[in-house]
C-alpha cells in the first residue's frame, strides 16, 4: 500500500533505471525556491538551488558571488546602494 506522502505531489518523482534494467520511481524532496534580490526581487545569479545538506558540502565561494552583498542583492541594487551611501 502506497503511503499518503507518496500519493501527493509534495515529492519529486525521479525515474531511475536499476542495474537489473527495470525503471523504478524514486521520491525526492523538491529543490528550494530560487534566491531573489532583497530589493528588486530579481532572481540572483551564482546562487545554487540545492537542499541544505548539499549546500553544506559546497565551499563558501561557490554559494554566492564574492562581492559585498553577494547572494543578498543583485549587482544593480548593490551598486545603487553604494552610490546612495556616498550622498
Amino acid at each position: 500500500m502506497v503511503s499518503g506522502k507518496h500519493k501527493s505531489r509534495t515529492y519529486k518523482r525521479v525515474k531511475i533505471r536499476t542495474p537489473g534494467g527495470t525503471v523504478k520511481i524514486h521520491f525526492r524532496k523538491r529543490a528550494p525556491a530560487k534566491a531573489k534580490c532583497g530589493v528588486c526581487k530579481q532572481e540572483l545569479h551564482g546562487v545554487p538551488r540545492k537542499r541544505p545538506f548539499q549546500m553544506r558540502a559546497l565551499p563558501k565561494t561557490k554559494k554566492r558571488p564574492e562581492r559585498p552583498y553577494g547572494g543578498v542583492l543583485c549587482s544593480k541594487c548593490m551598486r545603487q546602494q553604494i552610490i546612495n551611501k556616498l550622498e
Binding site: 564574492e66 562581492r67 559585498p68 548593490m78 551598486r79 553604494i82 552610490i83 551611501k85 556616498l86
Partner: peptide
C-alpha cells in the same frame, strides 16, 4: 573614485 563592481566594490 569608488569601485562599484566586483569584490572590491565599495572601496
Amino acid at each position: 573614485c569608488v569601485k562599484l563592481a566586483g569584490r572590491d566594490a565599495g572601496k
